[in-house]
Nucleic acid binder design. Structure first.
Lengths: 198, 198
DNA sequence: CTAATATTCGACCCACAGTTCGAATAATCG
DNA sequence: CGATTATTCGAACTGTGGGTCGAATATTAG
């Protein structure tokens, strides 16, 4: 195994198989949760033998984390350019949420998992798992936008944390609540947010 | 055992012990969830032997359901009088949410459990468990208030379901999001809701 | 082609947690 | 007081499911 081209292909194939496993894992985790999902089922759904999963991942938790990390990475990739833009705080804030809503409509299972799974999982030490960094970064960005927005009079003069809770809850409700059959439009998001922000 | 008075006392004691068990179960379920909570721990916390729990309940799930039913019953008892009152739809709607927020501040563990647990549990057939009826009743009442409110021009002219999602999410965010250390005041609730409702 | 290495997988292992057993103790009745 | 019934509980049972093993197959190297 000194051939470089071969090694590249192999590692690409390896990554591709990991993708397949994660894809299957998502459909199982999605409506079963971390505990409810059985390794055997993930194996069956993703079309590999059970032991093969352990050839690519060291544990069930690692599969779970890898999925989360994968999702947050791609989410952040989409949001980053908006976050560093030079619009006003309020405009940026709204753009971010609209972008997230748009993405959710693109791949609902993934994002439902991304935003719902953590709470049933965030036990003790896992706080410092890698995906959590992305979540914190997003939280921090939104929080700073709110603070700047308040200073510039674009947001109501309330505790930033309170506004954050309100906006977060409102957004979550609009996008994820209900039988999720009806996707939310960006206009509806914007209208609601504008109402709340006065 | 033909003595009636004795039988009454016994059944009262039996109910009291069930209460104790549920009380212990709540503290365990609260931050461990249905799967994460171990029967042994519930037994230890509530001060009974493990087997004794099965003398009072037939299964772990029954304990879980009983807790939910118990909570929803007492919640509904508090809300009912407001719901049947003769205030305007909007006033009634806001009163209901404020009342819930007030109750949450009274017994946070219980209500956090009530509003958070179902989602990690609502699997298949359990849809028709008894507590679910109360949840549906509350949902229906709120929905009708929104519809009436729209007709009377007290709410923005949007799809009722959309308003429901928005208000539900907003409320949930305000009351339950965050490290829950800071309790929300009724005034803050009212202000936010009024903003959103225009 | 042959040896070495990479990959796959079902069968097995075993720890854990829900449930049951059987005996021991407490309460009630006649 | 016995006798009967209600209650309690730790020990033992059992099914489930995460994780491992070893053999079989495929792939690459030389």
């Amino acid at each position: 195994m000194t051939n470089t081209a071969t090694m590249n292909r192999k590692s690409a194939e390896r990554a591709a198989r990991q993708e397949l496993i994660l894809q299957g894992a998502l459909t199982v985790f999605k409506d079963k949760g971390l505990e409810g999902a059985k390794i055997d089922e993930i194996a069956r759904v993703s079309g590999f033998g059970k032991a093969t999963l352990y050839y690519y991942f060291t544990s069930k938790e690692e599969i779970f984390s890898a999925l989360l990390l994968h999702g947050w990475r791609s989410l952040w990739r989409e949001l980053e350019e908006i976050a560093v833009g030079s619009d006003s705080p309020r405009a940026t804030f709204i753009s971010l949420l609209k972008k997230i809503a748009e993405l959710v409509n693109t791949d609902r299972p993934l994002y439902e998992f991304l935003f719902q799974a953590p709470q049933s999982y965030t036990r003790e030490e896992n706080e410092r798992s890698e995906w959590k960094a992305y979540q914190n970064r997003l939280y921090k960005v939104l929080m700073e936008l709110i603070e700047e927005g308040i200073q510039q009079g674009e947001f109501p003069k309330l505790e930033p944390r309170l506004i954050m809770k309100a906006m977060g809850g409102l957004f979550h409700g609009l996008v994820f609540l209900g039988k999720d059959r009806d996707t939310i439009t960006e206009n509806e998001i914007e209208e609601m947010l504008s109402n709340l922000l006065g």
